[in-house]
Simulated assay, not measured.
Amino acid sequence: MTIDVLVRNNVNVSGTGSQTIMFAHGFGCDQDMWRYIVPSFTENYRVVLFDYVGSGESQINYYDADKYSNLQGYAQDVLEIMEALNLRDVIFVGHSVSSMIGMLASIHEPTYFKQIVMLGPSPRYVNDLPSYYGGFDRRDIDELLEMMQMNFIGWASYLAPIVMQNPERKDLAEELEKSFCSRDPHIARQFAEVTFLSDCRVDLDQASVPTLILQCSDDSIAPVEVGNYLHAHLKNSRLQQMTAKGHYPHLSQPEETIRLIKDYLTIA
Rank of each mutant, 00 (worst) to 15 (best):
L204K: 07
L176S: 03
C29D: 06
T2S: 07
P110T: 14
T211N: 01
R139Y: 10
T243Q: 11
S220N: 11
E143C: 10
V194M: 02
Q115M: 10
L71A: 04
T257S: 11
R169F: 13
K235H: 12
A75C: 13
K178F: 09
V163H: 01
A188F: 13
R238N: 09
K235V: 13
Q72K: 15
Q76M: 08
N12G: 09
G227M: 01
I141G: 05
T20D: 00
E193S: 14
G94W: 01
Q72N: 08
G94C: 09
G54Q: 04
D218G: 11
P249Q: 08
N44Q: 11
I116H: 00
E143R: 09
V90K: 07
E193T: 05
V226T: 06
M82E: 02
P167Q: 05
V13G: 04
H25K: 04
N86D: 15
N70I: 09
L49P: 01
D140P: 02
I162P: 08
D4R: 05
N228C: 14
L176M: 12
M100P: 12
M82Y: 14
T42Q: 10
L176T: 08
S198H: 10
D66Y: 14
E225F: 03
I101M: 05
Y36S: 12
G17I: 04
S198I: 03
M147A: 06
P161G: 04
F92K: 00
P121E: 03
S157F: 15
E168M: 07
C216W: 00
F136K: 06
D128E: 15
S18Q: 13
D142T: 09
A244E: 06
Y74R: 03
E255D: 08
V7K: 12
L85V: 05
